[in-house]
Simulated assay, not measured.
Amino acid sequence: MRDGKPLRHIVLIGFMGTGKSTVGRLLAERLACAACDVDAEIVKREGEAIPAIFANRGEREFRAAETAALGAVLGADDTLVVATGGGAVLSPENRELMLRHGFVVALTADPEQVIARVSQDENRPLLQGDLRERVYKLLEDRKHAYDFAHMTIDTTHLGVDEVVERIAQGFIRSISQHSI
């Protein structure tokens, strides 16, 4: 809740390959609202693909663009389901924005499931090199980065519809608790 009002958006956080984009689209359909992928918003705003931003400007510039895009998206008046990039939680400013404007849901998955899900995706600049080694290292580095979420769901053994339903119910409970 912010300023006495229920949280307006649902913000999906989690490591890459946990299902944020897929769950986000289906959750938005379920709730009859719009979905927004922050990575897609960055590409639109910057006019450059994410791997190109990393290559040409570096991770620091990418993270600044990410914060700007996240702030713009979360400033929307209409309810959105917002899928963030896996590293969006690294910035304290981003975490504060998410908590101020949204019901934050962390999606997790077993490391081997993450590897299987991202192994064919060449648009992941942080996974260049030994994929298995990079995934395990990043997961270790970020093991507590998602702890601030209102709700956490392990997607390893759940179907997308099950994940969507759990989030929808959690969001609805959150709204009803604040409207009493």
Rank of each mutant, 00 (worst) to 15 (best):
R100K: 15
D77E: 15
G75D: 14
A109M: 10
L138T: 01
D154E: 11
A88W: 13
G75W: 07
E66Y: 03
E133P: 05
D154L: 06
T108S: 15
R63P: 07
L80M: 12
I153S: 14
A65P: 13
D110R: 12
D161I: 09
D110M: 10
A149S: 01
L97H: 06
M151H: 13
A109S: 10
I115K: 00
D141K: 04
E93Q: 10
L138Q: 05
F103I: 01
R63G: 05
A72E: 15
I167D: 13
H150C: 07
A65R: 14
F103A: 00
V89Y: 10
G159E: 15
Y146P: 00
E122Y: 03
L99A: 13
G75V: 12
D141P: 06
D121T: 06
T152L: 02
T108W: 11
H157Y: 06
E165H: 04
T67R: 14
A116N: 08
H157D: 15
M151P: 01
I115Y: 01
A72N: 15
I167K: 13
A106W: 00
D154Y: 05
T84N: 01
G86P: 04
A106I: 07
L97I: 05
D147G: 05
G85M: 03
E133H: 12
V135W: 00
A76F: 07
E133D: 09
L97D: 03
F148Q: 03
V114N: 03
T84R: 05
E112P: 00
H150I: 06
V163W: 11
V114E: 02
A106E: 04
E165I: 02
R124Y: 04
V81W: 04
E122V: 00
G58F: 10
H157V: 08
V164H: 15
V163E: 01
R117E: 11
V81M: 08
G170W: 09
T156L: 00
V114M: 12
G58Q: 12
T152S: 15
R124K: 14
F62V: 06
E96W: 09
H101I: 05
D121P: 09
D154N: 00
V164D: 13
V82N: 04
L80R: 14
L126E: 09
L138R: 07
D121A: 09
V160I: 15
A149G: 00
T84K: 09
D141M: 07
D154H: 08
R63S: 13
H157K: 10
P92W: 03
V104K: 10
G170A: 08
V114Q: 02
V114I: 15
V105P: 02
A145P: 08
D77Q: 15
M98H: 04
D121N: 15
G170E: 09
A109Y: 09
G85D: 06
D121F: 01
K137G: 01
